[in-house]
Amino acid sequence: MAPLLELRNVSKIYSQGLLSREQTIALDNVSLMLDDAAPTIIAVAGESGSGKTTMSMLALGFIEPSKGQVLYKGRNVASLGGSDHMQFRREVQAVFQDPFAVFNPFYTIDHLLTVPIDKFKLTKSKQQARTMMEDALSAVGLRPEEILGRFPHQLSGGQRQRISVARALLLKPTLLVADEPVSMVDASLRATILESLKKLKKDYGISILYITHDLTTAYHISDNIIVLYRGAIMEAGDVDTVIKKPKHPYTKLLIDSIPWPDINMRWGTTDIQAKEGDYRSVTGCRFAGRCPFVMPKCQKAPPPLFKTDETRAAACYLYEESQELAHQNVTALFAAGR
């Protein structure tokens, strides 16, 4: 059976400048597979500019890869046409980061929810449409009577974000791409949104590509994780292994920068400085400029993924005694983790 979504050696390069053709490699040769045997949640983590949003845009078919292919149920997303494209649009839904920017401020929530119902001809009866909306809103823990008829500006960020999830749920998708769904929502409401997402997986069998910079939520919600840095996979594998015992210096930096709600766990226990990365192109490891363990070797060629554990691989020469991951295919690790 064809996998649900497959990124096959995908690269995305953005060029700018008329004459100089400055190139930014947003995603560099990434392969990933979500199989449809069992619904799963894969987290894609990394800082801003690491290519995680590019990855979500590719998965949603908003942009085409520069190299490689994005396949949905075995068919190239870029060449889907007509009704197939509509089906793809319906089955692959998105929840975006900014709950304040995704809604048209001139329309009520009813209108926002009726658009997909009409567009995909879910029902013709108004009564039934109303019931569908109410069910979807209740499923994400909202009270329909408080939401319907309101305008987006009358609702809180957490409510709007859950409406986004409800809107996606309305269409009964097979895959949900959630791009930083909780980063702009109250910490106390995060739990409810994450709960809604988990429910989608459990009750509706929807797989989720969870894009985030927040390793805490990634740890709690996902089964597997991919850590990206400047377009390349730094570390990937089973989420417990990666978060609890990070191998790659970059993952260590990310985990160390989490503000743990524990006054005995202070920032600054590792010697990796928190600073923004620079985006000049490099020949070697992309993290070399910030890495405290940098070796001459790191500057020459980017390290491949080394399989350090049964369910995890890290792209770092510190672990070169370990076997290289076959075909650099991180999906193999995920399967092993189940």
Binding site: A187, S188, A191, E195, T216, Y219, H220, P261, D262
Partner: peptide, 29 residues
């Protein structure tokens, strides 16, 4: 606040925080 919150709401806020121990348990208020 973090070791001995007094108000029940503060207690609920503190205990709703995710940490490494209780994976997959979302304790919302």
């Amino acid at each position: 606040m973090f070791t001995d919150p007094l108000h029940p709401y503060a207690q609920a806020l503190i205990s709703s925080l995710p940490n490494l121990e209780n994976k997959g348990v979302f304790q919302s208020i």
